[in-house]
Design a protein around this nucleic acid. Structure first.
Length: 461
RNA sequence: UCCCUAAUAGCUCAGUUUGGUUAGAGCAUUUGACUGUUAAUCAAAGUGUCACAGGUCCGAAUCCUGUUUGGGGAGCCA
């Protein structure tokens, strides 16, 4: 039987020395007509293949170019070179497909420095680069860690719908979902668009959050989480916004805000500890691009988060002459303020009890009747990584709140029902998965840590 | 969406301030030499719609207007 080896498996196994192996991969470069440097994506490390010139025809060697895929049969041997412990001395080289040299010269596959924007322009090829493959391995590991954490904590993974009819946050832009021919829209008697003729019989959108559905599940199953794509049709052009991003949303019955904070802090710590342990190689590679990466990650692990209320934050900020933007109780904190707080305390901030005005309708009203039981977790560089709250479990108060905010309550009848039949205190939050990947990898632009970024004016791949 | 800024060879950039003849460099590529190298080295060669559209001028990569796209900052948020 033919045994194929991943580099990840063989490069660490000494007992394979002098054995015959078969490896596949893509050529990164071919040096001195003797050393083929290949990678199969399983690990950051490249595998060096030794070519004994006399064993192969010139025609064959000429076809081996950057970017080509090869299968090598050979003997796994200790290397006499300094940069690798072992290598493969080839006996058979099989080329999968020819590559046009003039064409490949136009791609990012040539072993050179490319700006992140250039890599993004060839998003389909950037998986082959050391930088992006490192990020992808970390991203994968982080997804797995999320499921692992919740699994061992007894949470249930719930698949909330991607197509919804409700606007969970009251946040601005949502993507409409329709099967209508936009050049020929069905109209009713008053010449308004007749949504009853659309696929679902009413207006539908791509979900901006699985929270409302998540709450209904939590209020039966106890502890649940969702982990899926989320869509925002906002015209945000920043380093940390995507139109399509991934969010982890736990929702827990009988949890009050303090339990919620503890969970959020614990899970973030868990992620960082696991990634630092499991993705050492890739993290160290990224550190070579970004000096302070490890220190920044270690800062989170070593320090408990600073928990302060919105009101306390305002007090601190008003006494600071450095702050440019004027500030008073009631305003939304600007990114300048958030950045100041994180730097001031030198660790992540959990910002509590924001003014009710401007916060979502489902957040629980505090006894002062001015603030809600909200929590935002602020990280260095990326800002808000978690936004959550204790939910308003009191039916009358929730209804009042919706009426104050002019939210038409009828479509939310099923959500309101949860407050009528065995309502209990409960809490949850949304964790921006991509922002966390961004923080862990130290990459400046969020578009460079997701395989195929969707942002305003960009959905090519 | 607003403010600032940029777009020159496959890549990374110089040239633009102060318009002037044939637009440069390094790397990559091609050809040759070498063959235990580490993004090898040496020699030679080829490579441009100066983002797009219009304008000013004897003459525009360079000045002006518009458009597109990228980058930085702000807002919205995760």
């Amino acid at each position: 039987m033919t045994v194929f080896y991943e580099y990840k498996r063989i490069t660490t196994k000494k007992n394979l020395i002098f054995q015959e192996v078969i490896v596949n991969g893509w050529v990164r470069y071919f040096r001195s007509n003797r050393f083929i440097i290949m990678n199969d994506g399983s690990t950051l490390k490249d595998l060096q293949i030794i070519v004994m010139e006399s064993n192969f025809s010139k025609e064959l060697l000429k076809k081996i170019t950057i970017g080509i895929a090869l299968q090598i049969r050979g003997i796994f041997t200790e290397s006499t070179g300094k940069k690798q412990l072992a290598e493969v001395i080839s006996t058979v080289i099989q080329i999968y497909n020819k590559v046009s040299v003039s064409e490949i010269n136009k791609t990012i596959l040539q072993p050179k420095f490319h700006k992140p924007e250039t890599l993004r322009d060839q998003a389909h090829l950037r998986f082959r680069t050391k930088l992006f493959s490192s990020i992808m391995r970390i991203r994968h590991q982080l997804s797995f860690c999320a499921h692992e954490y919740f699994y061992y904590q007894g949470f249930f993974y719930i698949h909330t719908p991607i197509i919804t009819s409700s606007d969970a946050e009251g946040v601005g832009g949502m993507f409409k979902v329709t099967i209508f021919n936009l050049n020929d829209l069905p109209k009713d008697d008053q010449q308004y668009i007749d949504h009853t003729k659309d696929f679902f019989g009413h207006e539908t959108y791509l979900s901006v959050s699985g929270q409302l559905e998540g709450e209904t599940a939590a209020l039966s199953l106890g502890q649940i989480y969702t982990f899926g794509p989320t869509f925002r049709a906002e015209n945000s052009n920043t380093l940390r916004h995507l139109s399509e991003f991934w969010m982890i949303e736990p929702e827990i019955a009988f949890y009050e805000i303090t339990d919620n904070m503890n969970l959020a802090e614990d899970i973030l710590n868990y992620f960082l500890i696991k990634i630092l342990k499991r993705c050492k190689e890739d993290i160290y590679y990224l550190k070579s691009k970004e000096d302070m990466l490890l220190e920044r990650l270690q800062l989170i692990v070593d320090n408990s988060f600073c928990r302060i209320s919105y009101t306390e934050a305002i007090t601190i900020l008003t006494s600071q002459p450095k702050i440019k933007h004027t500030i008073h109780w009631g305003i939304d904190l600007l990114s300048e303020h958030e950045r100041y707080l994180v730097e001031h305390f030198c660790r992540p901030i959990i910002l509590l009890d924001a003014p009710a005005e401007g916060k979502a309708f489902y957040m629980r009203l505090n006894d002062d009747e001015k603030t809600v039981s909200s929590m935002d977790i602020l990280f260095p560089r990326i800002g808000e990584v978690i936004g959550g709250s204790q939910r308003e479990e009191r039916y009358e108060l929730l209804l009042n709140r919706m009426q104050t905010l002019d939210i038409y309550e009828k479509p939310y009848w099923w959500y309101l029902d949860t407050r009528r039949f065995g309502s209990v205190p409960h809490s949850g939050f949304g964790l921006g998965f991509d922002r966390l990947v961004q923080f862990i990898t130290g990459i400046l632009n969020i578009r460079d840590i997701i395989p195929f970024p969707r942002t305003p004016k960009n959905a090519e791949f």
